[in-house]
Amino acid sequence: MSVITRSTRVIAVALAAQLAGAAVSAQEITLKLGHLANEQNVWHQASLRFAEELAALTDGRIAVEVYPNETLGKEVDLINGMQLGTADMTITGESLQNWAPMAALLALPYAYTSLEQMDEVASGEIGQQVEAQIIEKAGVRPIAYFARGPRELTSNRPITSPDDLQGLKMRVPNVPLFLDVWQALGAQPTPMAFSEVFTSLQNGTIEAQENPLALIQSANFNEVQSHINMTDHVRSWIYLTISEITWGKLSAEDQEAVMEAAKRAQAYERELFLQAETEIRADLESKGVTFVEVDQAAFANKARDAVLSGVSEEIRPTVEQILAMQN
Results as ranks from 00 to 15, higher is better:
248 G>Y: 05
249 K>S: 10
250 L>N: 15
252 A>F: 06
253 E>R: 15
253 E>W: 03
256 E>R: 15
257 A>K: 04
257 A>W: 01
257 A>S: 03
258 V>A: 11
259 M>P: 01
260 E>W: 06
262 A>G: 14
264 R>G: 01
264 R>H: 08
264 R>P: 00
265 A>Q: 02
265 A>C: 10
265 A>Y: 01
266 Q>N: 15
267 A>Q: 06
267 A>I: 11
267 A>V: 11
268 Y>E: 10
268 Y>D: 09
268 Y>L: 12
268 Y>W: 15
269 E>R: 04
269 E>Y: 09
270 R>A: 13
270 R>L: 13
270 R>K: 10
270 R>P: 00
271 E>T: 10
271 E>M: 09
272 L>K: 14
272 L>F: 04
273 F>K: 03
273 F>C: 05
276 A>F: 06
276 A>Q: 11
276 A>R: 13
277 E>I: 09
277 E>N: 13
277 E>T: 12
278 T>C: 13
278 T>M: 12
278 T>I: 15
279 E>G: 13
280 I>C: 02
281 R>L: 09
281 R>D: 04
281 R>Y: 06
282 A>G: 05
283 D>R: 07
283 D>L: 13
283 D>E: 12
285 E>G: 07
286 S>L: 07
287 K>C: 00
290 T>F: 01
290 T>G: 01
290 T>M: 05
291 F>I: 03
292 V>T: 08
